[in-house]
Design a protein around this nucleic acid. Structure first.
Length: 196
DNA sequence: TATGCGATATTCT
DNA sequence: GAATATCGCATAG
């Protein structure tokens, strides 16, 4: 599987979110390798009031202000972790939230971590994705374009058409079309109207 | 399928 | 004290 180089990543955050649909997220952990095809992602662009970078750079969100490529991992609702790919140039706070994967490799490992057998429950939704991939704050800041425990790879097959919609779960900037997903893929999260 | 609700911790006001 | 880039379970249709 071809590892993505930083130069492959789109420079613009919205373009990056679209680019990542169909690419592969690989996790190498003690239990073995798990990988999944990215089928849903949301862009949180520079100056976006719904983005975690909007308040300015603080300790928690510093990864969003790095060059494009590192992971930003945060903890939410007292129970879940979510993963972003940082975008833009150093000093600019922006990123792409990875919302759903189609499981490819290491199904048994992900089923054990998620304590469920159902394929579409393994990584459909950002919290589930992080649990299936065993991602927590320990992976915050690691470069997804380098050898390491979490990295990006090319396509395992060509993607179907990419659709666009409003983002899920936010209360500001709710009308911007910055969510991208593979139309009709059963591993995409959200209500039916936002999956077709 | 849709809606409603509780759980839970960190951050912000 | 309130809000949160969520999830799983319950219930209704």
């Amino acid at each position: 599987m071809r590892r993505l180089k930083r130069a492959d990543l789109s420079v613009d955050t919205a373009a990056l979110a679209r680019f990542l649909i169909g690419k592969t997220l690989v996790r190498d952990a003690a239990e073995g390798r798990t990988s999944g095809r990215i089928v849903e992602a949301e862009a949180y662009v520079a100056g976006d009031a719904s983005g975690h970078a909007y308040i300015g750079q603080v300790d928690r969100n510093r990864s969003l202000f790095l060059r494009r490529g590192p992971a930003y991992v945060y903890f939410i609702y007292g129970t879940h972790f979510c993963v972003n790919v940082s975008g833009e140039r150093p000093g600019i706070g922006a990123g792409v939230l990875l919302r759903a994967l189609e499981p490819i490799e290491g199904l048994a490992i992900m089923r054990a971590r998620r304590r469920t057998h159902r394929l579409t429950d393994l990584a459909r939704g950002p919290g589930r994705l992080a649990e299936a991939k065993k991602i927590d704050r320990g992976l915050d800041g690691i470069d997804l374009c380098s050898r390491g425990p979490l990295w990006l790879a090319g396509e395992v097959r060509s993607p179907l058409p990419v659709a666009t919609s409003v983002r899920i779960g936010i209360s500001k900037e709710t009308t911007r079309l910055l969510r991208f997903y593979e139309a009709g893929n059963p591993h995409v999260s959200g209500p039916l109207a936002l999956r077709k």
